[in-house]
Design a protein around this nucleic acid. Sequence first.
DNA 1: GTACACTTTGGAACCGTTTCGAATACGTAT
DNA 2: ATACGTATTCGAAACGGTTCCAAAGTGTAC
Lengths: 384, 384
Amino acid sequence: MASIRDVARQAEVAIGTVSRVLNGGSHVTDLTRQRVQKAIKELGYKPNPAARALRSNRTHLIALTLPELTNPFYAAIVEGVRQVFEPADFRLVLCSPNSSNNAVPQYIDMLANRYIDGLIVVFDRFSAADNNSIALFRLGRKGFPIVALGPGVASDKPDFDCITSQVPEGLKEAMQHLVEMGHREIAYFGPLKGVVEARLQAYRTALARHKIKIADSLIFRGETTLESGFSRAEELFQRQRRPTAIVAVNDMVAIGAMMALQEHGVSIPEEMSIVGIDDIPLASMVHPTLTTVFQPKEAMGRLAAERLLGRIEKRINSFSAIALSSQLIVRESTGPAPNFRPTTNGQPSAASAQNETMGKRRTLKVEEAAFKDQGNCIQRQRAD
Amino acid sequence: MASIRDVARQAEVAIGTVSRVLNGGSHVTDLTRQRVQKAIKELGYKPNPAARALRSNRTHLIALTLPELTNPFYAAIVEGVRQVFEPADFRLVLCSPNSSNNAVPQYIDMLANRYIDGLIVVFDRFSAADNNSIALFRLGRKGFPIVALGPGVASDKPDFDCITSQVPEGLKEAMQHLVEMGHREIAYFGPLKGVVEARLQAYRTALARHKIKIADSLIFRGETTLESGFSRAEELFQRQRRPTAIVAVNDMVAIGAMMALQEHGVSIPEEMSIVGIDDIPLASMVHPTLTTVFQPKEAMGRLAAERLLGRIEKRINSFSAIALSSQLIVRESTGPAPNFRPTTNGQPSAASAQNETMGKRRTLKVEEAAFKDQGNCIQRQRAD
DNA sequence: GTACACTTTGGAACCGTTTCGAATACGTAT
DNA sequence: ATACGTATTCGAAACGGTTCCAAAGTGTAC
């Protein structure tokens, strides 16, 4: 394998000159530059990244920890991150959790040990106050480039950037939407703890605002997977009384629930309305299409990547907590509750009036593209 | 940051001695070893991976390219790979395709440029004869540690190991299963080209063996995603005549199809039988549970990792094409075709006899665990 | 022709390991 | 006490880049 010395010999210049051609290239005549580039091409020379990393303290490697691989929400974030780091000539390392342990410790380790130049941590459903986070805070304080990313990461005084989206606000809209259509028994499917706890909290707050009693029996504890949504929905059929709507912690859970309901012949939204969160591609492809709280996933990924790159290149040295805007997208999976008649309509509600021909639900067409590239609501910022 | 010199000074030994304690540790007295280890702990010393990589030509980094992130099939493979590389103190880099380009080129590059010590390429649905593969073959010939992994990777004379599973054989069983239950119009959902082409071929061969005409109208070209399965199944409803069974290129497609069918009120398997391939966890959780061709995913990952590790450590220097066994798992999503009566039964077939009470389908209980850790059918092998 | 400023190039030092030949310490046989 | 073999330990030389300082080259003004 050709080294920089071979190139220097071939081009009849000093190794320092070759290095200068390689990086930036200032203070080199065109003539010598061409000679060097010719030699590089002839020898098929590629700089040794280990040597480079050793001398410059830059591995040009970024890690991105993901709580799970199979949720398309994360795929969109990865895409956004990549859009920033690929042009900057950084390589991206994806880290998923082991079967036994969480993904984070291993990659905290990689950061502390200079395998990677920076770390984007996508917090999972577990508490942000666990051991990993403590290690993360410590590294952040020491100045390692870290960005936290995810649904509802909350930290009062972060030692790194926190990028999130305003899901609770979007969820508030969603609850409003359901209540307006007469839903009073609204179930929640999802974890009770961790970074998505804010969603459950938003659900509760919204119910309280509308003076609807919060029934623990309507809160279904589960994971964030399709499977979990499926099995929670199955549980509904062991009950004598069912809710009229389900709010799911994310789209995968919502779609899992839809699958189970449709299998049992429950028609959506006539008999049951369903709301998801994320707006993954699948949400607009299933039938009925899924009403969901849009998150600007790629924009979150891009923003996280830009902040991280800024820290690595020492352009940025303040920490921000940034929340991108999030908004309800009404599609086909939500409709009026069974028996619901608008209050302006004085008729008594028919006993079990739901059927295929019942008045078609209002379908707001939201301009989705408008969200795709925005989101710039900086909430807090503090100096370095 | 403490370096090996700091440790040597603190422990009052030479740096070479510290290095020996770090690696293996032969030719060191217990006393000095303890002194060194004490110093390492006191200083919080961690070897610099860049320096290590530079000197030893080992980055201790392995890349694994995945065609897509969201299919659980790949998650299982990742898990198997990890089981081998984590104990060996290698770090795993996951690579997913960009929105614009394939994942492979970037990571071929990483291998050629010594960012990583080895590469496991999971071939995607695209042809194995494209540009990437050619670059891969070249690197393989040059002796870079590479293992190819995936459903139906075929190469007569590989310059690296190829790990696959005998899906065509399993699919043959599945077709047999369907034909025995009276199915004559069996659709295929999946890509027509690429490494999964062997599946379509197996489907065709099986039909031919049973003297069933192969109708192009029953071959539904699609992707390998849930969405694709969903939309192909939707297309069925635009036809006046539908098949009685669907064979899908993988479980995600099969489950997508199930979703669409159930939404339209088609009961499975009474009106439509469905067969998947892979046996992802979801397959045994949906209702009805999915009949599928099991692939030993973790075992494939482990085997690929072991071969790769062997090459990296220069223990192995031959190339093998290894196919692990794959087998049909019959669950609930397949049953007798509508109108089907076993030939031993002389009764004329009733006009549209399918209903809930119709004779329960035969349900083979396959001992799944038996597959989990085996699969050792070496097909071809050639010396270095 | 000489002094001076400025650009380009050369060459050495350094980054933090591993490795290997040389040096030392130690134990045993003579 | 001396010689010798073996088990440890030392210390220097890589590995392949980047960076910085000094040297050389070039052009302009006097």
